[in-house]
Design a protein around this nucleic acid. Structure first.
Length: 212
DNA sequence: AACTCGGGGCA
DNA sequence: TGCCCAGAGTT
């Protein structure tokens, strides 16, 4: 992908989604961390429904630990993968209490050591909670990056991330991340991408194929 | 690299 | 009914 096309993609995304942002409701880094852990393979809308009541009941890592596992499972019941997530959240909170003075660590390395926190979640937390430039690669970012030709079809998630960090200026990483998400969620959907009305269809593998 | 967890939304 | 959803851990 040449620099001119990259620039055009970034400018077009900015034009389409000027105010793309994190849509997981939260009021501090700890709540964001919990929300992102819950959001794995689920929709942010669903997560917000759950956290609206969850965050009223649980304020601190101690609150999550001082409750039977079954109770926490019940409180997040209608999100998928809830058993894994409940267990991970309690383990994660124990680590915060024992090793981080109850605070959320601010580095990728420390964050990814937490139960249920992988590279994608860690990237979302450092960028949205601590202002660190980052590009978190989720299914949307991976899909649209491959369709637009920003990376190779068979790139791993980590390879996608590295490629994007190389192509995109660092000061635009976080914004670009959010815009790629919005682009994937609202326009370049997994099943029926809106190629007919897409300003990037001419340089997109998927667009060329579908409009042919 | 493939498999599993998983209820809910949407066509 | 089948596919997807702001993934991570295990084998």
């Amino acid at each position: 992908m040449n620099k001119k096309n990259v620039r055009r993609i970034l400018d077009t995304l900015k034009d389409m989604f000027p105010d793309a942002h994190c849509e997981l409701n939260h009021s501090n880094p700890f709540e964001l961390l919990i929300a992102v852990v819950l959001s794995a393979q689920s929709t942010d809308k669903k997560v917000n429904e759950v956290t609206e009541t969850l965050f009223r009941k649980y304020k601190t890592p101690q609150d999550y630990v001082h409750v039977p596992l079954e109770e926490l499972e019940h409180d997040i019941k209608h999100i998928g993968l809830y058993r894994n997530k409940a267990k991970n959240i309690q383990a994660l909170c124990r680590t915060l209490i024992e090793e981080h003075n109850g605070e959320v660590p601010q580095t990728l390395e420390e964050l990814t050591k937490l139960a249920g926190v992988g590279r994608k979640t860690a990237n979302v937390v450092v960028s949205n909670a601590f202002g660190v430039p980052a590009i978190a690669v989720d299914t949307h970012v991976e899909r649209v990056s491959k369709r637009l030709g920003l990376c190779k079809w068979d790139d791993s998630v980590l390879e996608v991330e590295k490629t994007l960090m190389k192509l995109v200026p660092k000061e635009e990483w976080t914004q670009t991340h959010h815009r790629l998400i919005f682009f994937g969620r609202y326009h370049c959907k997994a099943q029926r991408p809106a190629c007919e009305s897409c300003p990037l269809s001419d340089i997109c593998r998927e667009g060329k194929k579908r409009l042919k």
